[in-house]
Design a protein around this nucleic acid. Sequence first.
DNA 1: TACTCTATCTTGACAGTGTCAAGTTTGGAG
DNA 2: CTCCAAACTTGACACTGTCAAGATAGAGTA
Lengths: 191, 191
Amino acid sequence: MADRYHHGNLRQALIDAGIKIINENGEEALSLRKAAAACDVSHAAPYAHFKDKDELLEAIKKSVTDKFTGELETAVKGAGSADEALIAMGRAYISFFSRNPDYYMFLFGKQNISAHLQMNKENKEDYPPFLLLRKFYKLHLKENGIKISSEEQEIELIKTWAIVHGMASIACMKGVKTSFDWNDPDARLIT
Amino acid sequence: MADRYHHGNLRQALIDAGIKIINENGEEALSLRKAAAACDVSHAAPYAHFKDKDELLEAIKKSVTDKFTGELETAVKGAGSADEALIAMGRAYISFFSRNPDYYMFLFGKQNISAHLQMNKENKEDYPPFLLLRKFYKLHLKENGIKISSEEQEIELIKTWAIVHGMASIACMKGVKTSFDWNDPDARLIT
DNA sequence: TACTCTATCTTGACAGTGTCAAGTTTGGAG
DNA sequence: CTCCAAACTTGACACTGTCAAGATAGAGTA
């Protein structure tokens, strides 16, 4: 019989299988046993790599967040100015969740966001997408010669993030359909 | 023995027990069997009132949404103008979820929002809080003599909703703490 | 080579879950 | 008074997360 005791890369295989199950049937459908079965492995095998179900979930979230952050960074690459970058980022942000509505609740639901990221517990402001936003916001201030207090900056940052994040959130509410095309070309960011 | 076959008002009792369990231990902790036990009733009794667990969940969501909408309406009552009403509403909106962070994901997570509301399937824009916002936004335009196209109005509405909803959402992200007090007195609404 | 150690995986078990089928009770309509 | 239908109970099933105990095999050591 083949080697039933050494899968080789079970940890990653479980993450991949988990993502596939969630994509096809939603987060509710994911069970440790199904993920294990998808990897042709016994129901308790995952416990060699994850403490419990939550730990697998967190690993999957990290994987998805990495993809999300990657899309934001790609969107920013082609921008000629900080203003363009911010707009592109906002579009990419909304577009990501508009294309994958299930991911919104999966990423932001239930668990503490910092749990699945390598975030500093002391300074909790280093959520990667927010870091990217802050970076280009500061560049935007510099390029346009705007001078405001750092406190005011923080408020503006939150407002900007809130409007984009809020639009993404609303775009994911399947029950609330507005006469609004989330992917139309329309500058509606930056106060 | 007492009457074990006629609870009297089991349906409402299950909803109340469900809310209590969710408040104390989170949505995850709610099971039909626990809610039934809390009502001193057998594990299958809920099926006389709810088709399945989701139907109980929807009933609970409706109950919470009613409370939320009620708070918004109360906040609006004391306002002297539409502008004041809008600001009060925004504060109440954020305050509600800031005080009950678990409710955010409970209400907006997973299920279709329209499922637990008596919403018209044809016109999906009648989410009660949004209706309230639209009402006072139109009043705001009127009071200030602002004239813009209805299309533009809709975009402004979504933007306003998005910034408030987004702030509420961010306020509920326990892992992402910003140097921002969500309850401070500060006019930051209405574009 | 032979021997052990340890991470990895299996098997078996347990309590808890949602759900259904079938039986029991009871108030109220006829 | 009879009978019905709604409300509830009991019992069962498949499925879940989790743990304990055992099996396996590669890697290192002698």
